[in-house]
Nucleic acid binder design. Structure first.
Length: 565
RNA sequence: UGUCUCAUGGUGUAACGGUAGCACUGCAGAUUUUGGUUCUGCCUGUCGAAGUUCGAAUCUUCGUGAGACAACCA
């Protein structure tokens, strides 16, 4: 998207990947063509770690006038499912990215098979009939060399015949594999005759059905697919760094020097405090019912974040702010929270919600009278306009906005008669309160000053605090789900304790009987609001007209709460 | 007793041999019809040791520390 203009000041602060791409461009690599791919395996839902990869894959293509394809890495039918294909596609679109072409590694099964045959004919691959355990044992360790398989030097014709019969279904799963013939003593474990094809007959493939009985392994499929497709820059996370030499080796075997070839480079994966990012752990959370599904708003999945109220923009801004390096670190979740607050600040209308209602009666206000007051939707955004709020003698206010015995620095309602403003309404003074038999305050009484109406000259009077209210007759009930960080420790994976003990017991608190202003009656799912003084909230997907449900996206910063801790 | 990779405030990230900057967090104060926002200020950093150089976060060497790699997963 960037247009290069000689008059423009040179771009600065490129990340190391952009620097590499610009350098490749300058050197005319691959004729100046830029092509990337986002290669998810359809075995789980996308999480925010994937978004980091998506942003660089699609971002590089966009920035350097290239293309980015979506390619499902569907080489293992045992684990994969169409369910995930659909959700991955829609998540990418929701994030605002567009792939040039939609491919599947399974599109290349024939080419990959033919290539395997080529490797066998070249004497660079052989069929091994040993068990998985034996092969693993012979692999050696990172510090000791492996030993060669007795099948390593069998005749090419024999391997060829066996491999073809493997694919006809003549042999059971696990009975034999095709291995590349490289070096069992290599210091890089991945070069110790890696398995490149295995037999899978027990699970039909979600796209090719039972056509194939052998499936390529990642190392043989990924780089070759990149090559078939014309990928120039194959970007992935750091754990694939040790695979890169093998990625290059395979391509060396059938591509001439100097010809086009894809290039793999690795960046740091995303870790965020108080959550986990591995698909295995996320799956465990779902399967054990520790959360309510992949889209539980506590999950770092794209669907979970969306349901939590995170916008695509905020997630992309967050990713943009953390950058790409080779340093494996841990991002403070407050950075993510900052991104959503920043995005919602001008977008989310301010509304009143009372979580723990207590009745406030304005004793000098006429009974049965109703008055329509005007309030701004968002002081941070003039274009957001105003709305009407019905005011009356009986209101609900937040229980915590009244204190019988208040410290000096408590600015809200107290029986001492401090003046307090009701948001967009009048200034009131507490005159008394009522308690039930258990000593709980049930009603608070106050008088109002009719000359202090907001928007009038008398309304300019300064008071120390403004509190929220809803009209007792027009407000509506709502359920509020207060979400917080899923884990109570910064790095759950690093803890010695059992995974289950690390879950934050307060990661979800459900509040019933909350009172929200009537304007929220028709709020649409996934729309964002700021509940004044409380936080940003979104309407849950399960919310209905008769049963409103709001999810807390993130709280507002609260220096008062900090002081009182 | 392997190979590869990495090392800048609490966290993340810049500085590409020439003044260590930015964001987040935290702490103060000002403003505020949100104890929010905004504004101002403050705290805190080049892993260590040699070397090259007029000059090193940057280049070299040696340490130290951290991570990845031994799935018929990707």
């Amino acid at each position: 998207m960037t247009i290069t203009n000689e008059n423009e000041t040179p771009k600065k602060n490129l990340n190391f990947i952009e620097q590499m791409v610009e350098n490749d461009l300058k050197e005319g690599l691959n004729g100046g063509r830029i092509q990337t791919r986002f290669p998810p395996e359809p075995n789980g839902h996308l999480h925010i770690g994937h978004v980091k990869a998506i942003c660089i894959d699609f971002g590089i293509a966009e920035k350097y006038n290239g293309i980015c394809n979506l390619r499902f890495d569907d080489t293992n039918p045992v684990k994969e499912d169409v369910e995930y294909v659909d959700s991955i596609k829609s998540d990418i679109q929701w994030l605002g990215f567009h792939w040039e072409n939609l491919y599947y590694a399974s599109d290349y099964f024939q080419q990959l098979y033919d290539l395997a045959i080529f490797f066998i004919k070249e004497g660079k691959a052989y069929v091994d009939e040993q068990s998985a355990e034996t092969i693993a044992q012979q692999k050696g360790t990172p510090t000791t060399p492996g030993t060669e398989s007795p099948f390593r030097n069998r005749p090419i014709s024999e391997s060829l015949d066996l491999f073809e019969r493997m694919n006809k279904g003549d042999f059971a799963d696990g009975s034999m594999v095709l291995r590349a013939k490289i070096d069992m003593a290599h210091s890089n474990m991945h070069f110790r005759d890696p398995i490149i094809y295995r037999i899978i007959t027990t699970h039909p493939h979600h796209r090719t059905g039972t056509k194939w009985k052998v499936y390529p392994m990642y190392d043989f499929a990924h780089g070759q697919s990149d090559y078939f497709e014309g990928v120039t820059h194959s970007l992935c996370t750091l754990e694939f760094e040790v695979h890169r030499p093998l990625y290059d080796w395979f391509i060396d075997q059938f591509v001439e020097e100097g010809a086009y070839r894809p290039k793999q480079r690795e960046f740091n994966r995303l870790n965020i405090t108080y959550t986990v990012m591995s698909k295995r752990k996320l799956l465990q959370l779902v399967e054990e019912g520790l959360v309510n599904g992949w889209d539980d708003p506590r999950m770092p999945t794209v669907c979970g974040l969306r349901r939590r109220g995170y916008t695509a923009t905020s997630i992309r801004n967050f990713i943009d702010s953390i950058g790409y390096t080779k340093v494996e670190g841990m991002i403070d979740v407050s950075l993510l929270e900052h991104a959503i607050r920043e995005d919602l600040k001008p977008k989310a209308d301010r509304v009143c919600a009372i979580f723990d209602p207590i009745k406030l009666i304005i004793t000098n206000y006429p009974e049965n009278a109703t008055e329509i007051l005007i309030t701004e939707n968002n002081p941070e955004n003039e274009k957001s306009g105003t709305r009407e709020m019905p005011f009356g003698r009986e209101l609900y206010i937040e229980r915590s906005d009244f204190m019988e015995d208040a410290p000096k620095n408590f600015f809200r309602l107290t029986p001492n008669g401090r003046e307090v403003r009701l948001k967009s309404a009048y200034i009131v003074q507490c005159t008394g309160f009522k308690k039930d038999a258990d000593g709980n305050v049930t009603e608070v009484y106050c008088t109002y000053d009719p000359t202090t109406k907001s928007g009038t000259e008398g309304g300019n009077k300064k008071v120390k605090s403004t509190i929220n209210w809803v009209n007792i007759h027009s407000c509506i009930d709502a359920e509020v789900r207060l979400y917080d960080r899923l884990f109570s420790v910064e790095d759950p994976l690093a803890s010695e304790k059992d995974f289950h003990e690390l879950i934050n017991p307060e990661s979800l608190k459900i509040l019933q009987g909350c009172k929200v202003e009537a304007s929220l009656k028709d709020a649409k799912p996934l729309s964002n609001f700021q509940f004044l003084k409380i936080g940003y909230f979104t309407v849950d997907e399960e919310s209905t007209k008769d049963h409103l449900i709001f999810n807390r996206t993130v709280s507002l910063k609260d220096t008062w709460a900090k002081k009182t801790e």
